[in-house]
Each structure stands twice: as C-alpha cells, then as structure tokens.
C-alpha cells in the first residue's frame, strides 16, 4: 500500500503510464484496503477534482507538445483511453444499457480473434463491443478492429478510426496484430450485415470469404464468437436510396422512419436494450498450420462460428421480452 499513495502530477515522458492510469490502479487497490487506510487517503490527499484537473492539464500539455506515442497502425492509446472510451462509456451505460456476458471467454493477455454479427446502419455495435472489452474485462483489453477500406479513405473518419486502434481489414494487418498478442475484432458480414433492411434483423448474412479464419489459423489464435442483440433495432432501415449513396460514395443511403425525415435528429439511435455475449473460444491451433491453406477446413470453421453466433442470438432473443427494456 505504500506506493499506492504516490500520485505523480508529472507522469513519465512516454505518456503511456499516465497519472490517470496509476490513479485508477490506486482506486482498485483502495477497495481492497482496510478501513483505516481508506480514511487516511481522504484526509492526506488532494481532493478528487484537483487530481482530475491536474491530470487534464498534464494531458493537455502532452498533446500540445506532441509527447505521446502512436503505434505503427496509428493507434493512440492515451487519446483512446482518455477521450474516446469515456465518451462511449456514457452511451454504453445510459443509452443502450449494455449487459455484457461471457467476458471470461476472452483471454486476458494473449491474441484472440473476436468475431461478431454486424448490424445497425452505423457501427454502434463495434463501438459498444470495444467499450465492453475495455471497461468490463478484468484485463481492460483494447479491441483492434478491422474495418472496410471506405472507412480509411474517408477524411476525419479514417484518421479517427486509426487513432482508436482500427486498421484495414487485410491479412497482413490482421496477422501482424495477432502475432503481437492483440485482441482483434472482425465483422465478417461487412456491409451486407450493417446495411441490411429491418425485416432481415438478426438473420446473419454470408461471412465474407473466410479470410478471418485463415488469419487466425496461421497465428494459432482462438476465435471468440460474439453475439450482439439490440443493435439491430437502433435504426430500423426500411429503405435505401442508391443514387444518393453513389453520389456520396457510400455503400448505402439508409432511410429509417426518422431519417432523413428529421434530419440530424433522425441520426440519434433508438435507445434499445443491448446484450453482448462472448461465446466459448473456438481453437484454431490444433488444425495445424498447413490447414490454413485447406479451403474445406476454413469453410467448416467459418460455418461453425457463424452457427454459434446465430444460435446464441436466437437464444438471447427468446429471453428478451421487450426491445427497449430487455
């Protein structure tokens, strides 16, 4: 407990072990501490708001002077932890009231490939899965998602995606991340899934070409099937305007009961109740390295992952009484 009270106002040069990170650890340690220690803390230390302000100022200084680290994929861990995730956490807790289960199926310190169903017109499901894995997983894992090339070809969006740890869905990047022990997320349905009409909700679309399976097999990383319920109703897509989509260079231009009728207000997602379940990991290492070249094995595994997700979705749907209240 001795070093638990050291709260540096000037964190390390590299900015990765920020004062904020240490404070969080202090809090964790504090919950397990005895009562007398807890009383000590509240007397001797500066008030919470002062710490928060000091951290915010230190954070601002590091940003202004460029003293932060971005990895080769463009992932800015500090910016993600301090700005993106807290903002998304608010949506996670208050808007969608996400209930995440099966987090112990996600390894704490080794590589794994999280495969999930995709829906909802805008990728809220991907963002909420990221929050679940960082905020609710004991190891606080960062999900490194693989996105379509249109994401990275769009100004602002592309940069934002890279800073928050996403990269292009290609074999090179997927394997590089998995080999370095990262948790990688894929949505193999792609635009067929996220842009499907409302009547097709919770019907899994075709799973790409199975590239994600071969990437996992080559790296010997387990596949964690992830089923998301609730995301498919946030924007009930009842129509599409292909000419407008072509004009804007988008894969689709959604029409919902509120969009584009109500303008930006129509872009507010409906506050559905969400369930995210991480299933049992499917091992890929025992197939052997040469199996990654065998299309039969890849199709089998891909189908197995798809069926697991579909079945879990049906089970979760059967348990659910109301779209909005769960």
């Amino acid at each position: 407990m001795a070093d638990a009270r050291v709260i540096p106002l000037y964190p390390d040069e590299d900015g990765t072990s920020s004062a904020w990170g240490r404070c969080r650890r202090d809090e964790d340690a504090g919950t397990g501490a005895t009562g007398s220690d807890g009383a000590d803390d509240s007397e001797g230390d500066p008030a919470g708001w002062q710490l928060a302000l000091a951290e915010a100022v230190a954070f601002a200084r590091r940003r202004l002077l460029g003293e932060y680290t971005v990895d080769e994929f463009g992932f800015d861990r500090e910016l993600t932890d301090r700005v993106f995730l807290p903002a998304l956490r608010a949506v996670y807790d208050n808007w969608f009231r996400v209930e995440a289960t099966g987090l112990d199926n996600v390894p704490g310190d080794s590589a794994a490939l999280v495969v999930a169903n995709h829906s909802g017109t805008l990728p809220w499901d991907a963002l909420m899965t990221t929050v679940a894995l960082h905020e609710q997983h004991p190891a606080g894992r960062h999900l490194r998602m693989l996105g379509a090339d249109v994401v990275f070809a769009t100004p602002f969006v592309g940069t934002l995606a890279r800073r928050s740890g996403q990269t292009l869905a290609c074999n090179e990047d997927a394997q590089r991340l998995l080999r370095s022990g990262e948790l990688v997320g894929v949505w193999p349905e792609g635009f067929k899934g996220i842009g499907k009409p409302f009547r097709d909700r919770y019907k899994l679309q075709r799973f790409g070409r199975g590239g994600f399976v071969s990437a996992a097999m080559r790296c010997g990383a387990p596949i964690v099937p992830c089923s998301i319920v609730g995301a498919e109703e946030i924007y009930p897509k009842i129509g599409d305007i292909p000419p407008l989509a072509r004009l804007l260079g988008l894969p689709y231009f959604p029409v919902t009961p509120f969009f584009p009728l109500l303008g930006p207000l129509g872009a507010v997602p409906l506050p559905t109740k969400w369930y995210i379940e991480f299933g049992e990991p499917i091992e890929t290492a025992d197939h052997g390295a040469e199996a990654s070249e065998d299309p039969m094995v890849i199709f089998d595994l891909s189908d197995r992952v798809r069926e697991t997700i579909q079945e879990t979705i049906y089970r979760l749907l059967a348990q659910r009484d109301s779209v909005f209240f769960g």
Partner: peptide
Amino acid sequence: SPRDPAVFTEDT
C-alpha cells in the same frame, strides 16, 4: 493509399 496495409514488408 488507404487501401494498403499499415506496415509494408519487402514482399507486400
């Protein structure tokens, strides 16, 4: 380009 992998090896 945005369609390239993040890291190039000699064989990319």
